Computed example of a mutant assay.
Amino acid sequence: MRGLVQVAQHADDLDRATAFYRDVLGLRHIATYRPPGLAFFDLDGVRLLIEESAPPAVLYLVSDDLEADVARLRTHEVAIVEEPHLIFTDDGTFGTPGKEIRMAAFRDSEGNLLCLMT
C-alpha cells in the first residue's frame, strides 16, 4: 500500500452536495456521472467521491486561516458545530514541536460533520 487515493462521503441530494463542495468549500469538481449518481472532487490529490450509498465520513480539511475560513462558511449560512479552538500543542509527533493544532467543526449540506484544522 502506498497511500490514500479516494474517500467517499454520503449525500442525500447529489446536486445540493455538489454545489456545497464546489461553491462553498471551493473544491475542484472533477466529474459527475448519472447514472449511477456520483460526483468527484479533488482534495489536494485525493479524490472525494460523493454518493448516496456511501456511509457518512468525518473529513478533516487543512485550513491556513481558521477564523477566516469559519467566517466565510458563516456567510454561506453553514452550521458551525465547534468554534475554532486549541486541540493540543504538538510534541513533534505530527509535525513541528510546539505548533498549536487548532480545529473548528461544521456540517455540510447533507448533515455530515467536517472539521477544519491548522
Rank of each mutant, 00 (worst) to 15 (best):
K99Q: 14
D42Q: 01
D44W: 02
A68Y: 06
P97W: 07
R47W: 07
R102V: 03
V70S: 10
Q6M: 12
L66F: 11
D12A: 15
F20D: 04
V58R: 10
S53F: 12
G92D: 14
D90P: 08
R102F: 02
A17W: 02
R74P: 10
D64Q: 15
I101V: 11
A11G: 08
A104H: 02
D65R: 11
A11Y: 01
G3Q: 14
E110R: 01
D64I: 12
H10N: 10
D12Q: 13
L59G: 07
R107A: 05
R102G: 05
T75M: 14
N112W: 04
S63E: 13
H29V: 07
G92Y: 04
D91C: 03
F40Y: 12
G45Y: 02
E52R: 14
C115P: 00
R2H: 11
L4C: 14
G45P: 05
R22E: 11
L66S: 05
M1I: 15
R34Y: 09
F94P: 01
I50V: 11
E83V: 11
T32V: 05
A105G: 04
A57Q: 13
F40I: 01
G95A: 09
L59C: 01
I87T: 15
D23E: 15
V5H: 12
S109P: 08
I30V: 08
R2V: 14
V62N: 15
G95T: 08
L27Y: 03
I30P: 00
R34I: 04
H29P: 04
E110A: 12
D13W: 04
L113K: 02
D69H: 07
H10C: 08
L48A: 03
H10T: 08
Q9T: 05
A104V: 05
E67W: 13
D69A: 11
Y21E: 03
L25H: 09
F94V: 07
D64S: 15
E77R: 15
P36I: 10
P97I: 08
F88R: 09
R74G: 14
V46N: 02
G3D: 08
R107C: 03
L59W: 02
R72S: 13
L66P: 01
Y60H: 12
D91P: 00
V5E: 14
I50D: 00
V5R: 14
L38E: 10
S63K: 05
A79T: 15
L27H: 04
D42W: 01
I87E: 15
I101T: 10
G45V: 06
D13G: 11
V70L: 12
V78S: 09
A68V: 09
A79M: 10
C115N: 12
D13N: 11
A54P: 05
L49N: 05
T96K: 15
E67Q: 15
L59T: 02
G3S: 07
A104Q: 00
F106G: 01
